[in-house]
Deep mutational scan, measured.
Amino acid sequence: MDVFMKGLSKAKEGVVAAAEKTKQGVAEAAGKTKEGVLYVGSKTKEGVVHGVATVAEKTKEQVTNVGGAVVTGVTAVAQKTVEGAGSIAAATGFVKKDQLGKNEEGAPQEGILEDMPVDPDNEAYEMPSEEGYQDYEPEA
């Protein structure tokens, strides 16, 4: 019985440690998101679009440190934060509304985080759909 109880105690310690790591990862992701939003706020009209992409990228980098179902929630929060940063930029006159959601080359930025393969159960990952990809044929 002692062996059984000791095993359960060790398992509990492992769960607590994993929860603490997840909590730490979420806190880091939130900190990076805040950094990115402050970065966007300090940019001029020309830099705002690039700044919004930076927020998304920093958040995406930190999301990889967070495991399990938390990833889905962090990704949703990050996307809403990026959308909010863009709205703030438009409201303050840093950028025109028609410039939001495009990178410096004018290509749409939507789907940055949505296409990231995420499995809350950590069982399997699927690649994003290939609808947006084109076949590449090298020139002879």
Score class of each variant (00 low, 15 high):
86 G>S: 11
132 G>V: 02
23 K>L: 06
7 G>K: 01
10 K>N: 06
5 M>K: 08
128 P>C: 10
61 E>W: 02
36 G>P: 04
87 S>C: 04
10 K>W: 06
121 D>E: 06
3 V>E: 01
32 K>H: 05
6 K>A: 09
70 V>R: 01
110 E>P: 04
99 Q>F: 12
113 L>H: 07
31 G>E: 03
8 L>C: 01
137 E>A: 15
73 G>N: 11
8 L>Q: 00
107 A>G: 06
112 I>Q: 13
12 K>S: 08
106 G>T: 10
89 A>I: 14
39 Y>C: 07
138 P>I: 01
131 E>H: 12
65 N>G: 09
52 V>R: 02
78 A>D: 00
120 P>C: 05
64 T>H: 05
18 A>C: 15
86 G>P: 03
60 K>Y: 06
125 Y>K: 04
76 A>V: 12
70 V>M: 04
103 N>Y: 06
83 E>F: 12
38 L>S: 01
93 G>N: 12
34 K>A: 09
131 E>K: 04
84 G>R: 06
134 Q>K: 15
73 G>M: 01
110 E>K: 02
85 A>Y: 13
42 S>V: 06
48 V>C: 08
92 T>L: 10
3 V>I: 06
99 Q>I: 10
4 F>P: 00
76 A>P: 03
58 K>E: 04
128 P>I: 09
120 P>Q: 06
127 M>Q: 07
66 V>L: 06
110 E>W: 14
59 T>E: 01
50 H>A: 03
47 G>T: 13
91 A>M: 10
129 S>D: 04
46 E>T: 10
77 V>N: 03
117 P>L: 07
50 H>C: 10
73 G>F: 14
40 V>W: 00
39 Y>H: 06
66 V>T: 05
15 V>R: 00
30 A>W: 08
105 E>C: 10
50 H>K: 05
49 V>N: 09
107 A>I: 07
83 E>P: 08
21 K>W: 04
65 N>T: 14
62 Q>N: 05
138 P>V: 14
73 G>C: 11
52 V>S: 04
80 K>C: 07
98 D>H: 09
30 A>M: 08
107 A>F: 12
128 P>K: 07
67 G>I: 10
89 A>D: 04
87 S>H: 09
124 A>Y: 10
71 V>W: 12
5 M>P: 00
87 S>A: 11
96 K>F: 14
66 V>D: 01
78 A>N: 04
3 V>P: 00
105 E>G: 09
88 I>R: 02
27 A>H: 09
8 L>T: 00
120 P>D: 13
123 E>M: 09
64 T>W: 14
94 F>Y: 11
76 A>F: 03
130 E>A: 11
66 V>F: 14
20 E>P: 00
66 V>K: 06
79 Q>E: 07
72 T>V: 13
49 V>C: 09
2 D>F: 15
121 D>V: 14
98 D>A: 12
23 K>Q: 02
31 G>Q: 03
126 E>M: 11
122 N>V: 09
73 G>T: 13
60 K>W: 04
81 T>A: 11
39 Y>F: 11
121 D>T: 06
96 K>T: 04
85 A>C: 06
17 A>T: 01
11 A>K: 00
122 N>D: 13
104 E>W: 08
121 D>S: 13
136 Y>D: 02
48 V>S: 02
24 Q>A: 02
2 D>L: 08
59 T>I: 09
133 Y>G: 07
22 T>Q: 00
26 V>D: 00
81 T>V: 10
106 G>I: 05
100 L>E: 12
39 Y>D: 15
6 K>D: 07
104 E>G: 08
135 D>T: 12
36 G>I: 15
36 G>Y: 14
5 M>T: 02
57 E>C: 08
57 E>I: 02
119 D>G: 15
92 T>H: 05
107 A>N: 11
21 K>T: 03
131 E>R: 02
36 G>W: 12
35 E>R: 08
139 E>K: 08
70 V>W: 03
128 P>M: 03
113 L>Y: 06
33 T>R: 01
27 A>T: 10
78 A>M: 15
139 E>G: 09
83 E>L: 08
138 P>A: 07
88 I>V: 06
25 G>V: 01
76 A>K: 13
11 A>M: 15
33 T>Q: 00
28 E>Y: 06
48 V>G: 01
96 K>E: 10
100 L>S: 10
134 Q>I: 10
53 A>T: 01
90 A>L: 15
85 A>S: 09
2 D>C: 10
17 A>Q: 13
121 D>M: 06
110 E>S: 02
